[in-house]
């Protein structure tokens, strides 16, 4: 029993990181109708930049977290303004913009290999090895820290979206951009803010995951799983992205513990497909914007 609880907690931790990245996929999709395949690379950049800041500048962890989060947010704005907005502004086909994001993703990941090399870089912090004992449950403390940070950021995001004027503007322009613009919402500004938030959360997620494992130029693949998480929860739905992320993390972990580590990916994706067959819009998705 304590084994099950422990594995669920570990699953939730990875899930919280998935959720942070999944949120970015969802928010950008809602804002500009675009699947951003460069998104997971901001997670990778966050992980690698975080490594450099921690080891070269020796800044404390909380400062580094904030710094990297801000840097990745700014990076996402640049990506949109330089690499995607021109296509949107000239009404280029959506598929072209999506292919452009794939291209930017490849450039980011290969570029990072030139800068940081093909190595696995592990963080100097979190090196304490003593597990925390809660009754019969043994937990590594950084898992709790990561889950806490992830949860806190998601709560803050919900507050921002529901309780502030900016949040209202983001939701309004996602719902009906033309109407929002007529009502005086500066939609271009709102789109930039959306990219910034998604990039920032991906960068943060990258540092969290790298602190748990290691950072490397090819770690974006892990972030791409979050796209599946976002779909599982209901693509475009923000609570759905959170739920989907955590569900995927728990399913993966329990699958490899109780069924087979070899097939943990197969199990996770089979469950994803099964959910979609029963609930085509995902767990919390609305039926709007259906396939047909």
């Amino acid at each position: 029993m304590s084994q099950l609880i422990t594995q669920i907690i570990y699953g939730c931790t990875i899930g919280a990181v998935y959720a942070l990245i999944a949120l970015g996929f969802s928010m950008v999709f809602r804002a500009v109708g675009l699947l951003n395949f460069a998104h997971q690379e901001f997670m990778m950049i966050g992980g690698l930049l975080g490594y450099s800041v921690l080891t070269r500048l020796g800044l404390p962890l909380p400062v580094t977290l904030l710094l990297i989060t801000a840097a990745c947010g700014a990076g996402a704005i640049v990506l949109d303004k330089v690499g995607l907005w021109p296509i949107r502004a000239r009404r280029g086909p959506l598929i072209n913009a999506i292919v452009a994001t794939i291209g930017w993703g490849i450039i980011m990941s290969n570029g990072s290999m030139f800068i940081w090399g093909p190595y696995s870089l592990s963080y100097p912090t979190f090196s304490q090895l003593k597990p925390l004992h809660l009754g019969s449950i043994a937990l590594a403390p950084q898992y709790l820290f990561i889950f806490g940070v992830g949860a806190l950021v998601m709560v803050l995001l919900q507050l921002l979206l529901k309780k502030t004027m900016l949040g209202l503007a983001i939701r309004a322009s996602a719902e009906k951009p033309s109407t929002a613009q007529l009502m005086g919402v500066p939609t271009n500004y709102v789109i930039s803010v959306t990219f910034a938030i998604s990039g920032a959360m991906a960068g943060l997620a990258g540092m969290l995951i790298a602190s748990l494992y290691y950072a490397s130029f090819d770690m974006g693949i892990l972030g791409l799983k979050s796209l599946a998480a976002a779909v599982l929860g209901g693509f475009g739905s923000i609570p759905g992205a959170m739920l989907g992320g955590i569900a995927l993390g728990v399913i993966e972990n329990l699958g490899s513990t109780y069924i087979s580590s070899t097939y943990s990916d197969i199990i996770a994706y089979l469950i994803l497909i099964l959910v979609l067959l029963i609930r085509p819009a995902g767990l919390l998705g609305s039926s709007g914007g259906s396939v047909a």
């Binding site: 570990y10 990875i14 972990n253 513990t257 109780y258 580590s261 070899t262 943990s264």
Partner: peptide, 17 residues
């Protein structure tokens, strides 16, 4: 005897088993 996928990073479940 366990085999893990190439992108696996979380092994606590396998290790516990």
């Amino acid at each position: 005897r366990e085999v893990v996928p190439l992108d696996a990073k979380e092994f606590k479940g396998v290790l516990a088993k």
